[in-house]
Amino acid sequence: MRFIVGLFLGVLLVGCEQHVAPALDQQLYVWQRQWTSAHAPALSDSRSDFSTLRVLALQGFPGTRWGRAQVDPALLKADGRSLIAVVRLDGQLRSLDQEQVTAQILQVVADWQARGLTLSGVEIDHDAGNARLPAYAEFLKHLRAALPPSLPLSITALPAWLDSAQLPALLHSVDSSVLQVHAVSDPRLGLFDAKQALKWAKAWARISDKPFYLALPAYGVALLSADGGAPVVESEVQLERGGQRRELLADPLQLSQLGKTLREDPPEHLAGLIWFRLPLANDRRAWSLTTLRAVARGDVLSSQLRLSFKEQGGLYDIQLENHGNLDSPWPAQITLKAQDCAGADALAGYALQQSANLLTFTRLRDGRLPAGGQRAVGWARCAHIDQGGSHVDP
């Protein structure tokens, strides 16, 4: 009888235990063609949250042109994380010369190894159209045979390939795949659709019997208006041209919700998430690393905007600070209660209206204040500013 009661209680306790969703592996793309001093702190601050670095190593352009990314091997060696070299083959290449492309890739692998880097894999990023997938699969078979057997081979994959009968053969040629679910169609429709991304992931899981990852956006782009044509996309590098710029940014809240869904009910064979891209301190079109880490961890996201004042001899420097973990748009309006102001002005991005006992700063253009960041919005020479009477209107 005691055994039956004990068994019943054990079953009851197990039934009451909360289900803890397993953590998804989190990785990063490092996509800068020229490495700078900003890479060292970015790599150091990202180490605890992202297991693997997928680093742009080589690009193949139309016309048999090749470009090596100028990486810092000493930084990568000191970082110590798993390292995957990414080879970007332009989608506009008319064909892939198997021998030439393979030779270029093998040379990069040999050069990186000679510089003391231990590779955990090679990834091929090639946006081939569906009609070219048979030839692409043949190239991948050729490359797989040429690479050391112990070096895994992966590919970046497009959701459009789901419509191709060649997809199973293509996936058979590699060890894993990275399904890119951002900016895959007309960017005018937005950078990311979480519902569509989840549908693509589930469809991919039904076809792939090997591990796959989702490549997710942590960045923005600008669309530059063009006369009578499709807009030009401006991303990491600013284009020297005029015209209106429409900024598009992946929404951290939307990506955080998708991450929660994937952790609680991951599609079969989903091995993890890869974020594009490692944000540097001067990367104005990427999420801050603070926000990216919070999304990857599944933390609750919030912006906490506060005003701070530095006063010396009646001169106040007015600063806006973000004490939260979510990047925030610049607030539309900031109002301050002030007494006996002899002068005041707004700094770039804001305009000032001054009336009796009130300073109003109005936003003139869009901007973002990164999590943990601050920016000056203006100054005022006043007898007194009532900090408790200040107001930030998002």
Rank of each mutant, 00 (worst) to 15 (best):
V101S: 05
E99Q: 13
G91E: 14
A137G: 13
R68C: 05
D175I: 09
L96M: 10
S150R: 14
L117D: 04
R115Q: 15
H126R: 11
P148R: 10
R115K: 14
D111W: 03
A165Q: 13
L96G: 04
L117M: 08
A69G: 04
D79R: 02
Q104M: 11
V71R: 10
D90R: 10
L179D: 13
L167S: 03
A131K: 09
A110P: 01
V122A: 07
D90Q: 12
R94Y: 07
D79I: 02
V86S: 12
S176G: 06
L162P: 05
Q166D: 15
E138T: 15
V71G: 03
S154C: 02
S82E: 13
I84W: 11
L171E: 06
S82M: 09
A85W: 04
A114G: 09
D125M: 07
S82Q: 14
V122R: 08
L83R: 02
V178A: 06
L119F: 08
D79A: 06
Q98E: 14
A157E: 06
S120N: 15
R68F: 13
S154N: 09
G121E: 13
S150M: 04
P152L: 12
P148D: 06
L133K: 09
S82K: 13
H142W: 07
Q92G: 05
A114L: 04
L106A: 02
A145M: 08
A114I: 00
E138H: 10
Q100E: 12
D125E: 15
V181W: 12
R88K: 14
P159D: 10
S164T: 11
V101C: 03
L143D: 05
I105A: 06
R115F: 00
L151V: 07
L89S: 01
I105K: 05
V86Y: 13
D97M: 06
S120A: 15
Q113T: 14
S164N: 07
D125R: 09
L96C: 08
Q70E: 15
L93A: 03
A135Q: 14
S120R: 13
